[in-house]
Design a protein around this nucleic acid. Structure first.
Lengths: 347, 347
DNA sequence: TTCTATCCTGAAATCGTTTTCAGAAACAGC
DNA sequence: GCTGTTTCTGAAAACGATTTCAGGATAGAA
């Protein structure tokens, strides 16, 4: 237990200078005469003095703290992004305040409010489907903010991430190029998830452009879990055995689908191609390894940190930082089988 | 942008009372006369006033903030624990400051120091292998702390978690009961990880007690990744084809091992039993589903939150909270095959 | 009605910094 | 040697809440 928390005054006394000088040495070392500066630094060191964060925050109005609200840490790309974010913040002397929304816009609002009351200097959000209240609140307090994992700005809010729609477009085109026309989709569509919507939209549009418009019955909406991936595939293949490719909007769903395909005795990729999205660690280690879209989660986290640190310093930051995704072609995709039960079912 | 941040004084003026009364209504509503209290509450609401956290912290010495340092969020049990911790803290008006150590004791120390300088009211650590400096620092500041994921207290520090050694003991006994004597182990052993050590120790001791002492060459030390699980299994089975069971200290390693077993054409569980530890989501969905140890990560997070909130309030908290683990027997374990290439190789 | 005990309320001090403002010191120019 | 600059330093005023301490109001008792 500490008896008498050392404060600025103690340092000043020991160094034989005023409070102001000590403060200056700590904050703007270059404006104080070298010999005094050294004397003060020495005193600081010998007392192992650290400034009281609360007092500092009160007077200066800055907490050196950044808040983030993610949907959940259970999804590894968010966990990875948060970790990278925290590491970068830490390097710059910032502390991360973390909250999760469980994909619930009201909980997100509540957590953002709590963060603002804590006086965070900036905020990181995921996606652009936060409620208007959230953005109004943030704007009202004049706090820098960045939305992550998406590469478009809705309300003029800076964004850093990938173009989800472009990614699924490319993946879908790839499958079409392999001759797939009988396609099924397993998509996770939580209400508050614009990323999933963008991914789905990319698939549907590309399919349509290729003249393979997706019938409703071939679109399975699922929660983001392995089980739902399994169930989705089962449902799809039972009712549409002619399907030659299944596009999933996340790797978790795709892995579930692969497991079920194996259980149903459907060989992947010879009889059925499966694709994912996210490129989680597991995907490359499966047998066969999963064809998927790799997204730079760590880079998103680091980039968000950098942007906000700049914004706090009053520097301008880019409105949209469109990071590259990567289509990773592995073992779960192949040319469409030609021995279809029936050929070309129309929508 | 806010022009004139509403403060206590504004509320007081509107309600026609003094600052002190407003503060009382906010902190100890019961000691102020109901009619005044209502008037103040109304004023607070109509101005949508919130107290300045920094000023509050400065004067009261409490930040209503709790810090946690975890090795990494990349391991799902930690992500799950952190999420549960944050949710519970949030319910009680606390904010989580999160940092990660990457299993590096120096980084952990540095992050703990940063947390303390931020003035956290309490700290959550993972495991009991933090450096002495960390504990000395925490003690010096008189900050409540709890270590998680383990069920023993080393330096008198409260702990909440499971008995890792007991868990692997039970699992190993189960395998021995199935007739396995030719056993291999894939263990992740980062330097700063007492949990892994405890898990390994439980395996080795139990094996020894059963007269099946593990030769060094059958213990593969691995990093915590799927790839290393694969490589571990390969190494093990190539040099010791007589092995009938492989115990892994995490599910990730076990999943890697399963993948490799399949690639090597070794049927699981008929020719080889494999066990994991953690029970991550994937494990139950594999084919065959993985036999493993299930640990109550969310409960650990919630419990840590509850303990610390109590400790801050000056209430006593239990030194050790030993939460139950669960041996989950699924499809990767079966009786030892009897058609061994060779019988009973001795150490 | 007056006095005492009980409850509340408000004025003011305080928490530990940062920062403005003005004055002291040092220096150069004439 | 004296005045005009320039550079640093220190005293003091915030920042916005919490809380002590004492006095005023109210109620109860005589």
């Amino acid at each position: 237990m500490i008896k008498h928390k050392t404060k600025l005054e103690d340092v000043a006394k020991l160094a034989g200078v005023s409070l102001a000088t000590v403060s200056r040495v700590l904050n703007h070392p270059n404006i104080v005469r070298p010999e005094l500066r050294d004397k003060v630094s020495q005193a600081v060191a010998s007392l192992s003095y650290t400034r009281d964060a609360a007092a500092r925050a009160l007077k200066s109005g800055r907490t050196h703290t950044i808040g983030a609200v993610v949907p959940t840490l259970g999804i590894s790309i968010f966990a990875e992004g948060v970790e990278a974010l925290q590491n970068r913040l830490s390097e710059h002397g910032y502390t991360l305040l973390l909250a999760n929304s469980q994909y619930d816009v009201n909980k997100e609002l509540q957590e953002v409010r709590a963060l603002i009351e804590r006086g965070v200097d900036a905020i990181v959000l995921v996606g652009d489907s936060s409620s208007n209240e959230v953005h109004a609140l943030i704007k009202k307090h004049g706090i820098p903010v960045v939305i992550t994992y998406v590469a478009h700005s809705k309300r003029g809010t800076p964004a850093i991430g990938i173009d989800n729609e472009a990614a699924t477009r490319e993946m879908t085109r790839y499958l079409i190029g392999l001759g797939h026309r009988e396609v099924g989709v397993i998509a996770n569509v939580p209400a508050a998830n614009d990323r999933s919507r963008a991914r789905l939209s990319g698939i549907l549009k590309t399919l349509e452009e290729a003249g393979a418009t997706l019938p409703k019955s071939r679109l399975i909406k699922a929660e983001h879990s392995l089980v739902q991936g399994r169930m989705g595939l089962q449902q799809l293949m039972k009712s549409h055995p002619q399907i030659t490719a299944v596009i999933c909007t996340t790797d978790t769903l795709a892995v579930g689908a692969m497991t079920e395909a194996r259980a149903m005795g459907i060989p992947v990729p010879s009889a059925l191609s499966i694709t994912g999205f996210d490129d989680i660690e597991l995907s490359s280690q499966l047998d066969p390894p999963l064809t998927t879209v790799s997204i730079p989660a760590a880079e998103i986290g680091r980039g968000a940190a950098d942007h906000l640190i700049n914004a706090i310093a009053g520097l301008p930051i880019p409105l949209v930082t469109d990071l590259p995704f990567r289509i990773v072609i592995r073992g779960t995709t192949a040319k469409a089988r030609t021995t279809n039960p029936r050929r070309l079912t129309r929508a």
